[in-house]
């Protein structure tokens, strides 16, 4: 009886598979083909153009540096915020709500917010000037101030993207019954030991999800960078955008898109291996 119905699950997932196939796989194949062909024949011309472009090396470096700076800080901040919220009795929802406000803002708008703070006539300069720390308007976001520009972009990215990491981690923390921490406490574990030996291992699945999601998003960083630095701070998606719109060269844009995808997939693979989740060791 039940054996005859084994087709039902397949039938039920069929619409989503068709949908994904049409809207994801087809464009994916097209993009791949676009990247490795020239006028309809296989060719590495686009790849060569991409790699030999003046901005290629810098955009790869910038994207990786930004990811390396932003993701660990976000994870640590999210863990800290999540642990603090977990200790609260009242007002928990309110704090979480406030912390997640940046999530409701589009990344371009977030870029504009930080632009209004960091630009020459921005709030930061006004405050510093008011306090007498600087004597005239200082430029933070130019080609001449790469470090300040990098820090500005990193802060904006952290401001914009930490909430999503925190939500995943708070969800993970909520899954850990308080008795585990209490048992550890009874048997003499310090708060730090409880965090490293009990909490962290138990939220591994959430940590893994957060890392994958956040890293993939970090490699796709664009709007915030574009708003703050324009082409002063080239990143991979920014280059793809330029080749597509400014240069009208879809082939090279596709090559960038493929590169970003490969990097994201590789990062995901690394996380899946490094932050292994052994189902046997879950509650």
């Amino acid at each position: 009886m039940t054996q005859n119905r084994s087709w039902i699950p397949y039938a039920l997932i069929l619409p989503s598979v068709v949908f994904l196939g049409l809207l994801f796989v087809v464009p994916l194949v097209q993009t791949l083909w676009l990247a490795v062909s020239d006028n309809g024949t296989p060719s590495l011309a686009n790849m060569t153009t991409m790699v030999t472009d003046l901005n290629f090396g810098r955009s790869v470096l910038n994207t990786f540096l930004l990811t390396l700076a932003v993701v660990p800080i976000q994870i640590v901040m999210a863990l800290t915020m999540g642990s603090m919220v977990a200790k609260m009795n009242g007002g928990r929802e309110t704090i979480l709500w406030i912390w997640t406000i940046p999530l409701g803002i589009s990344d371009l708008a977030a870029g504009m917010v930080w632009l209004s703070i960091l630009q020459n006539t921005g709030y930061l300069n006004s405050v510093l000037f008011g306090l007498g720390i600087i004597e005239r308007q200082t430029a933070w976001l130019t080609y001449q101030t790469p470090v300040a520009l990098f820090i500005g972009i990193a802060i904006a990215e952290i401001w914009r993207g930490t909430a999503i990491v925190m939500i995943i981690i708070v969800a993970g923390l909520n899954q850990v019954p308080k008795e585990f921490k209490e048992a550890a406490e009874i048997f003499g574990a310090s708060p730090w030991t409880r965090f490293t030996r009990i909490t962290l291992p138990l939220i591994r699945p959430a940590l893994q999800s957060a890392l994958i999601l956040r890293t993939v998003l970090a490699f796709e960083v664009f709007a915030v960078v574009y708003a703050l630095g324009g082409r002063n701070f080239p990143v991979l998606v920014g280059e793809a955008y330029n080749w597509q719109n400014q240069n009208q060269n879809y082939g090279v844009a596709a090559a960038y898109a493929v590169l970003i995808m490969v990097i994201s997939l590789a990062a995901t693979l690394v996380y899946l291996k490094a932050v292994k989740v052994d189902p046997e060791r879950l509650p």
């Binding site: 019954p177 209490e182 048992a183 550890a184 138990l202 591994r204 060791r281 879950l282």
Partner: peptide, 9 residues
Amino acid sequence: FQNYAVFPH
């Protein structure tokens, strides 16, 4: 503990 609280990991 009543619900054991044996560490799963």
